[in-house]
Design a protein around this nucleic acid. Sequence first.
DNA 1: GCAAGCCTGGTACGCAGTTCCATCTTCACG
DNA 2: CGTGAAGATGGAACTGCGTACCAGGCTTGC
Lengths: 245, 245
Amino acid sequence: MSEAVNSRNHQRERVISAAFDLFAERGYEGTTVEAIADRAGVGRTTFFRMFRAKESVVFPAHDRLLAAIEARLTTARPGTEKVALSEASELVLEQYLREGERARQRYALTREVEALRERERASIFQYERLFRRFIHRWWGGDRETLLRAELAANAVVTAHNHVLRAWLRGEVGAEEARTWFREVIRDLDSQLSWYERPVHAPGRREHTGEHDGVSAASEGGPAVIVVRDANEFHELVPRIQELLE
Amino acid sequence: MSEAVNSRNHQRERVISAAFDLFAERGYEGTTVEAIADRAGVGRTTFFRMFRAKESVVFPAHDRLLAAIEARLTTARPGTEKVALSEASELVLEQYLREGERARQRYALTREVEALRERERASIFQYERLFRRFIHRWWGGDRETLLRAELAANAVVTAHNHVLRAWLRGEVGAEEARTWFREVIRDLDSQLSWYERPVHAPGRREHTGEHDGVSAASEGGPAVIVVRDANEFHELVPRIQELLE
DNA sequence: GCAAGCCTGGTACGCAGTTCCATCTTCACG
DNA sequence: CGTGAAGATGGAACTGCGTACCAGGCTTGC
């Protein structure tokens, strides 16, 4: 965590800001990479070392986000897959909400510029593929379940994006978006179950209390418990106890 | 239907063939637009008049296909929407089966070249949007059904592409692909019906037992608890309770 | 303090895609 | 047939993205 690294992060931030400023002033196509580099006080070469392409500066957090999702999905255990799925998507939502105005700027930009829309689609496909990979694995990993896993993954991503876009367009506030998203995921639940229904017999799945708003992942070591509504925690204690055993 | 039009179509065919030949010889990136134009005996300028971009020569029938789908969907009447949906997707499948080897060449090319994969995704999104537009209209066209229309459209397109890809990879023959596709669409039927079912009133969902603890996230939000030793969980309950308040 | 690396920025290059213009073909009409 | 208009063609020049290469400055380790 040396000074050099810190300064590089700062430099990177400066480039991103310069880019967004210029995009706002002259539009995306009207802004050359050279202009961005100049305003940020770096060379054109350095820009391309920081970002693979001009488009990439618009979605700078994408890779980190993908990694975070993968990390969250990896923690899923039998019975907690749906919570993992829901919370992993929520990571994306939260990232955007955190970015706030810049995310909305990017959205406005993306609406206008075809090249950026393509870029956005590429991101969405990466999310879908990631989710599909995990769901497919959870559901057995054989060829017959692949299509269902794909459908399930796409459904989650689509639902998430639907809510996200509403927020990006300013149609709902941050808190509304959160609750709406949870609602949508809950609505989707039966769909995912349907998709999960395998062609042949599934491995049995004991009741784990996932519908009770609590999930737990535990394998001997430390246990992590997620309680969706802290106010009803005491009602859930028996369930949690059960899950931990 | 003059001689000129005929000759132009022929010329266009020559360019496409030249492009595919060169892609096979030197790869996509290794082939310049100038080389394609030269081999086809036309000018570089003419190439860009025929195809918007280098990528476009790889998917030359795309626009026509979109139009055909739209035409088929337009003929849907109350009660025949699902047939229209199924047959419209089948148009795509049939187009590929008709193209035969060239379609498989394109698929192989698309697997290797990122730019072409992006292009393919863009096509898929166009299909999804088209289907969504129609489904949404069929289901009333109000905001509440939009998400469900989106989910339904994506499900159809995803299922179709799944089968199509199996054929493109040579895993199934043409006839198998056709029957499999119909089978898949039939399986999807109950899903589409579910998606069609209107959303619960925007007011409030009544408090059913199975959703306990999940819905009321407005206060406090989810809590995450880490228990270092799951075995001692019960001893920690009072303290956790305390922390949550 | 010196040498071995890396980060930086500059130059040059290839190529996609656009614009402009001169030339050639096609077609309609007298 | 002939002629003029409209449109199609190809060439040349230009912009800008992305890459390769190189030289100079800065950090890092000994």
